[in-house]
Amino acid sequence: MPIDIDIAHVARLARLDLTAEELESYKTQLDVILDHATQVQSLEGDPREESAHPLGLVNAFRQDERRPSLDRDEVLSQAPETKDGYFVVPPAMETQ
């Protein structure tokens, strides 16, 4: 299939604030890599959704048991901004 990359859309999905020049440069690089990657299309048949764990693992569960949580001060000490035990961010824009 032909490669056409809406690089601005991809960058938006990936939450990367890139300049127009950066976008252009990444698009060029991705074109080259994806052109090489089209080799995977040489295999026939339906695409696979997943491939199995090499050891065939299934049902790797834990029991419904509590384990100690982290110390909140230690966690919050790594945060860029906190208030009264909360992490703080500026408001979201898309909801109203």
Partner: peptide
């Protein structure tokens, strides 16, 4: 929401 100054997050 749209006029909020900030958002507090509790996980």
């Amino acid at each position: 929401i749209h006029a909020a100054e900030s958002t507090l997050l509790d996980f």
